[in-house]
Simulated scan of single mutants.
Amino acid sequence: MEPAVTADPEHLKALSHPLRRRILRHLRGHGTATSTTIAEALGENTGTTSYHLRQLEKYGFIEEIPERSAGRERWWRPTRGPRDVRMPAPEALAPEDRPALAEVLRLGHAEDMALFSRLPEAYERDPDWARLSRGFTHMTREGLAEFFEGYIRLLREHGLAPEEAPPDARPVYIRLFTLTADED
C-alpha cells in the first residue's frame, strides 16, 4: 500500500484545528460515535461537534455509517483506507500554505509531548502496555528510509482495525521519530 501524503492545503487546514484532532483521536480510540456522544465525551456542545464532524467528513477523514444512522442521529467512524498518512515536505507546498503544515506539526508535537509525559506513570502501572525503547545507530539516508518503511510494514502487519480487534485488544499510541545526532 502506498502512503497517502496529506499535501492538499485544505486537508492540512482541516487537521490544524485542535477540536477536529480531538474528535479524530476519540473516534480512533473509542470507535463509532454521534455528535452527541462526542460532545459529552469532550465537554463541547453538540452544534460545535456536529459542524466539525461535517468538516472532517468533507475532507475524507471520517465517514458516516449509514446503516446505523437514523433521522437526525448520524453515526461516524474514521475513514477506512490507508493507515499510513504522511505530511508533505514543506518545499512541496506553496509558501502561503506552509503555515497550515507548521500548525499541524505544532499540534502533533504538543499531543506527542502530552503522551510522552504520561509514559513514566503508564510504564509503572502496566509495562506490558507501555513499551519503550531508545536507540542510537549510524545509518545512511537510504538505510533510514528502508528502516522507516519496515516499521510501517510492521504496523500494518500487527495493527487491527477497530471492527477486527478481539475483545482483549486496546487502542495503542505508537510514535517513531528520527533526528540526526550530529547537531548535538
Rank of each mutant, 00 (worst) to 15 (best):
F61Y: 15
P3L: 11
G71H: 06
E157L: 15
A100H: 08
S69G: 08
V5S: 03
M87S: 13
G135H: 11
R80W: 06
F116S: 14
P90Y: 07
P82R: 06
M1Y: 02
Y51M: 13
P162W: 04
A114S: 03
S117H: 10
A14C: 15
R21H: 03
G135I: 08
H158M: 08
H26M: 06
P82D: 00
E149Y: 11
D126G: 02
S35G: 11
R125D: 03
E73M: 12
Y51R: 15
H52W: 14
R68A: 10
A169V: 01
L56W: 07
R22E: 14
A14M: 08
Y151E: 00
T180K: 09
E63G: 11
S50L: 01
W75Q: 02
I62D: 00
F61N: 06
F177W: 08
R125N: 05
V104F: 02
E10Y: 07
P127V: 09
E121S: 10
H11S: 10
R86D: 04
R106W: 11
R54A: 15
E40A: 15
P171W: 09
G159C: 13
H138R: 10
P95K: 06
P9S: 09
T37A: 15
A122L: 14
Q55D: 07
Y151G: 00
P95A: 04
F61S: 06
D128V: 15
L176D: 01
P88C: 10
T180F: 09
